[in-house]
Design a binder for these strands. Sequence first.
DNA 1: TCAAAAGTGTTCGCTATACACCCATGG
DNA 2: CCATGGGTGTATAGCGAACACTTTTGA
Lengths: 241, 241
Amino acid sequence: MAKKGQYTYEYPHPAVTADCVVFGYDGKELKVLLIRRGLEKEASTTAYVGEWALPGGFLDVEKDRTVAHTAARELKEETGLKLSYKEFKEVGTYSDIKRDPRERVITVAHYALVKLSEVQADTDAEKAEWFAFGDVPSLAFDHDKILRDAFSRLKQNIHFEPVGFELLPEVFTLPQLQNLYESILEVKFDRRNFANKMKHYEILSEVDDGTPRHGTRTPIKYRFDKENYDRLKRSGFQLEF
Amino acid sequence: MAKKGQYTYEYPHPAVTADCVVFGYDGKELKVLLIRRGLEKEASTTAYVGEWALPGGFLDVEKDRTVAHTAARELKEETGLKLSYKEFKEVGTYSDIKRDPRERVITVAHYALVKLSEVQADTDAEKAEWFAFGDVPSLAFDHDKILRDAFSRLKQNIHFEPVGFELLPEVFTLPQLQNLYESILEVKFDRRNFANKMKHYEILSEVDDGTPRHGTRTPIKYRFDKENYDRLKRSGFQLEF
DNA sequence: TCAAAAGTGTTCGCTATACACCCATGG
DNA sequence: CCATGGGTGTATAGCGAACACTTTTGA
């Protein structure tokens, strides 16, 4: 960040932050990454000390190319998770005049999807913790609302984006995929219809991992067929669920 | 706005603006309200002088409750159009480090829908002008991109919001409504299917304006049935087109 | 008088949904 | 051995899409 000092303007300026809602999935539940505020931060962060909050922080006016870059940088600093700025999807701007008790702060909220199994090791357990979406405690600032909004944005985007494939490991089973869709959309699907529809889209390819599968008790493993998916998407299709 | 003076911070702060894409409909084409930049503005507005741009301006850190309030205030000041902050729907945040040549400026773009017939008289023709969406000239800053994004947001939201009824006059005809949907979605519909679907939703009520209508050449006039629409929406429905 | 605009109803095909049985494993 | 989990196919109903003719007015 720019050096601490004196920065003067003719009119008052707000501070701008980027916040991140990082969703993961452990095969059973949707999870969110939270940090505990103010444990080892500079003096400027004195509000809501000790409370849980979304990772995020101030825009570096001189270095951050966009607020998505701010989100990526702060996420890395605060949780150890290293994501590209491209993985952040904007949720919205939160600008209420009283949302931060210290000074006027406007935040741009983003969400990102990660493969929990692949990143869990990277998250710095000292500072950050994964919470089941249903068990998230009350958060600092207006982060409760931001979290709710991010979730409903995710719920909408599931029709247009390969959400399932960004959250699941490379290789997954149909029941896992279905369970994920059910968690996000908060509904239940018929097993057979779900399988039929997925099959019909031709975006899954079976993975042969050697295990003979004479029974049906061990589910079939699949991999996401990105090529077919992209083709489908280019042709103006959307996943109907 | 706050008095001009000296406002000092420990870290650099960006300026924040709100921009407005105001859509109208004249019965034939989608229209957008633009202003010509810098004709009678204060010194700080010296970029892109004389070019066309979206209405918008700086957040008043001390007075604007949210950036939507900024949008409403600036729209009023720049074009004479008086809309409530609630009528602005957020499009997104534009924060590229080089998007404004003067200093770091982050803008939050919004769009709003107006009944052109009812507001055209309020727009200050000295400063602002309505352009057909297809004939919009090249705009200042990244406003070209903002305009495109606002349009595609509108295109998506048409499925969830009574877009047609916010853009048309109180009383309108089926062909007008269809034409509007076709303009926004950039497709053509079958006249009969469109009528059937609309009828089926039961959100139109016929308006009897006295004219006897023996022929079929003069279209039937309708009014939007907000009550039924709200009921439909509460029941988790969406308009499929 | 002819072209253009608007109203109206039916058929067909597809897709979403509902639904039952079998097999294998693990407790 | 039984409960649980997972794989598979079919039949039906409802909805979206295609489609033609008649009337009137204005040029």
